[in-house]
């Protein structure tokens, strides 16, 4: 087992390295950080621009391979280089991961828990009205892209706030920096409401579909019938025996979703003006920020592979059959 894990880890590190290198090469050859300095008024002399770009390792006059080796040597020691205007990519990344985590933690958990609960409920009540309503609703929500959903939420909140005459629910930013202590904490929660709804609605719809199918599979199996036959209350049999087995596939998706969400919440972050990792993806491309683009790619690749690994562990924890083999 240890040898298998080690080999897998080595393979993953190679994949991440190749993916990040490809992203760096692509960004370094197509992006033009010089543009940000050339357009300035009063104009900056070319020698000054060159010197500035040289210190940030962004000068397009340096051969690509040389820039790449400088970057790779830095990354190997944990230094992701400088942003286009000289800031540290490491600091920026640390700050943004924090923002993304604060945004995603609640949304992902709420989405997963509610989705699983609704899916299980609609499987138990198959073909009843509640099952039909959940089915139609989740199908409709899955057809609405998140940027349409988020815009609709923002518009609805804006109109509601205007009708009320005061701001009941905030729709932009992470918190109001002028507030302190308890007030600020409440203010942060208020800012979380809309992004959390926009993140979790899609997840609820998705998980409820998977969970319903899995639950229907399990409900007709012998061990659930045995559990009820030996006198367990229906509720206990359903929750302890059926739901636990049916959770396995959803858990796999959940692990993957958490890994990809860190950069996948791009739309929610951009629309509600949270400056997390997903928003950085867009900002760094628009600012021709080569080192930041490479850092985001590396981070995203590492997240995906970590999620794959985590999902294997989770399945092994939930499913005794996997542990034996």
């Amino acid at each position: 087992m240890g040898k298998y894990l080690l080999r897998r880890l080595a393979m993953n590190v190679i994949l991440i390295a190749v993916a990040a290198s490809l992203a760096y090469m692509l960004a370094a050859t197509t992006m033009n950080p010089r543009a940000a300095y050339q357009g300035r008024r009063p104009p900056v002399p070319e020698t000054v621009i060159d010197a500035t770009l040289d210190t940030y390792n962004l000068n397009d006059k340096t051969p690509l391979l040389q820039r790449y080796t400088t970057w790779a040597a830095g990354v190997a020691t944990g230094d992701f280089g400088r942003t286009w205007n000289g800031g540290s990519v490491n600091d920026e990344m640390g700050r943004r991961i924090g923002v993304s985590l604060r945004l995603l933690f609640v949304g992902t958990l709420v989405g997963f828990a509610l989705g699983v609960a609704l899916g299980a409920l609609s499987a138990v009540k198959q073909y009843r009205p509640s099952d039909r309503v959940i089915g139609v609703a989740s199908f409709t929500i899955m057809a609405i892209p998140v940027f349409v959903l988020a815009t609709l939420l923002a518009v609805a909140t804006y109109s509601m706030n205007r009708a009320l005459g005061f701001t009941l629910i905030e729709y932009t930013g992470e918190y109001n920096p002028r507030l302190t202590g308890w007030d600020q904490w409440l203010n942060r929660l208020n800012h979380l409401v809309l992004p959390t709804i926009s993140l979790s609605l899609g997840a609820i719809a998705f998980y409820s579909r998977i969970q319903r199918n899995m639950m229907l599979d399990v409900l007709n199996q012998d061990f659930v019938r045995t559990a009820m036959a030996k006198g367990l209350p229906r509720r206990t049999a359903l929750v302890k025996h059926a739901l636990r087995t049916a959770l396995i596939p959803s858990a796999t998706y959940f692990a993957f979703a958490f890994g990809t969400l860190l950069t996948g919440a791009t739309f929610t972050e951009k629309i509600f003006a949270w400056h997390g990792m997903g928003a950085w993806l867009i900002d760094s491309i628009n600012q021709n920020d080569v080192n930041a683009v490479a850092a985001v790619s590396l981070f995203a690749a590492a997240c995906v592979l970590a999620a794959a690994f985590l999902s294997d562990l989770l399945v092994a924890a939930l499913d005794p059959r996997v542990r034996v083999s």
């Binding site: 993916a19 491309i285 683009v293 995203a300």
Partner: peptide
């Protein structure tokens, strides 16, 4: 296939397509 799955597709398309 693994490599393409790991590469952030959104980012790659976003860099190339404006060009």
């Amino acid at each position: 296939v693994d490599l393409l799955l790991v590469l952030p597709s959104f980012l790659i398309i976003a860099i190339i397509s404006p060009r």
